[in-house]
Write a protein that binds this DNA or RNA. Structure first.
Ligand SMILES: [Zn+2]
Ligand SMILES: [Zn+2]
Ligand SMILES: [Zn+2]
Length: 378
DNA sequence: CTGGGGAAGGGGCCC
DNA sequence: TGGGCCCCTTCCCCA
């Protein structure tokens, strides 16, 4: 794609192998009930050869051993991100005997990311185009979490390392850090509550349905579903809601506020989830778009920006487009390699210049399920 | 199928 | 410290 702009890797596959870099398979998260902040990272490393993983400190000193069957231990490895190039790389995965080891190429300061550079060739060999594309970008990949080296310790006793920086206290206020996910909190009690997301502890149980909650406030809110109580009333339409958040969302209907704007078209939405779904349509459209076509499908634009009025039969502005599209759909249906995505006739590709229908790009007729990760639009 | 509205759960901040 | 509150998210349903 734009490999020309990428930093020229000095290590090729052969180099990686020569240096014993072991490529671990990137798998979807094994536990769907992970906290979202973690699950969204979508990185779980599998260790096919061994049940232990040794972590080495700089100087090749064995730091500690992880049992990779233990998900709590394995999870931290998801924080290892692909480095944009060898310059940023500070971590190397290697195979030692039958164990997977990581060692630091450079000092890893608190707050630094763990960046491993698998190499573009490796990414391609793993058939991971997203990673390959990431590696092809000049800027560093955006990582949502910077892993503190201390977080690696997990349940290990904290032995102060010589040369280790003092515990987090930037900006005078002491910070309490979760040593599992490195999130920091201003108050210890907040950290304690937070730790329940890792431990799974749910101390508060509903006496009626036995459902358990991590926080008392959640249980109290939950009680309303049994009592049917809706304490929050919309003063405009007098509809009642069980929570302030839901009321607030509802109030946008009256105020007309639509905070979530599509960056690709003038469409706006009251709820983020609606924007997300809408953007997925753009994404699908983009994948099926012929490079010659105008970037915005008029059909999609029309739907988002000029929503149908209830009772109205159709939007006139779109009618001509629709005619084109349905014509094209009929044409395309007789052509090979269509049919998987039939649900979007309005988006069917017409080359405006030639007036002819365009075939989808080769092999773009993948199952729609594959669409699941449109790169999480900030 | 898309857009839109609501119910409910969950995480974190603040007093 | 922890309860209250806010925000965000997911899921579901309906037009
Ligand atoms: Zn944590
Ligand atoms: Zn209950
Ligand atoms: Zn109202």
């Amino acid at each position: 794609m734009r490999g020309e702009t990428s930093p020229v890797p000095r290590w090729r596959d052969a180099d990686l192998e020569a240096r014993c870099t072991y490529v671990v398979k990137d798998q979807p998260p094994a536990r769907p009930h992970l906290p979202r902040t973690q699950a969204s990272l979508g990185r779980t490393l599998a260790f096919p050869r061994s049940h232990t993983s040794e972590v080495y400190a700089p100087g090749a000193q064995l730091h500690h051993v992880l049992d990779t069957r233990d998900l709590r231990c394995r999870d931290w490895m998801r924080y290892i991100n692909p480095a944009p190039g060898t310059a940023a790389q500070n971590l190397v995965a290697c195979q030692h005997d039958r164990n997977i080891c990581f060692y630091a190429l450079a000092p890893i300061l608190p707050g630094a990311e763990l960046l491993m550079w698998p190499g573009r060739e490796v990414a391609q060999r793993l058939q991971c185009p997203a990673l390959a594309a990431k590696l092809a970008q000049p800027q560093r990949p955006t990582s949502r979490l910077a892993l503190q080296l201390d977080a690696v310790n997990l349940s290990m006793p904290k032995t102060p390392r010589p040369g280790a920086l003092p515990p987090k206290k930037q900006s005078s206020r002491p910070k309490y850090e979760c040593n599992i996910c490195a999130k920091t909190f201003g108050q210890l009690s907040n950290l304690k509550v937070h730790l329940r997301v890792h431990s799974g502890e749910r101390p508060f149980q509903c006496p009626i349905c036995k459902k358990r909650f991590t926080q008392l406030a959640h249980l109290q809110k939950h009680r309303l579903v049994h009592t049917g109580e809706k304490p929050h009333e919309c003063l405009v339409c007098h509809k009642r809601f069980s929570s302030t958040s839901n009321l607030k969302t509802h109030l946008r209907l009256h105020s007309g506020e639509k905070p979530y704007q599509c960056p690709l078209c003038p469409g706006r939405f009251t709820q983020q989830v609606h924007l997300r779904l809408h953007r997925r349509l753009h994404e699908l459209e983009r994948r099926h778009r012929c490079p010659h076509l105008h970037p915005l499908s008029l059909a999609l634009h029309q739907r988002a920006c000029h929503p149908r009025v209830p009772g109205a039969t159709h939007d006139f502005g779109l009618e001509g487009e629709r005619a084109d599209a349905s014509q094209a759909a009929g044409l395309a249906d007789s052509l090979p390699q269509r049919g998987a995505e039939r649900g979007t006739p309005g988006l069917l590709l017409m080359d405006k210049a030639s007036g002819s229908a365009l075939l989808p790009l080769p092999r773009y007729g993948l199952p729609v399920k594959q669409e699941a990760s449109p790169m999480q639009p900030a």
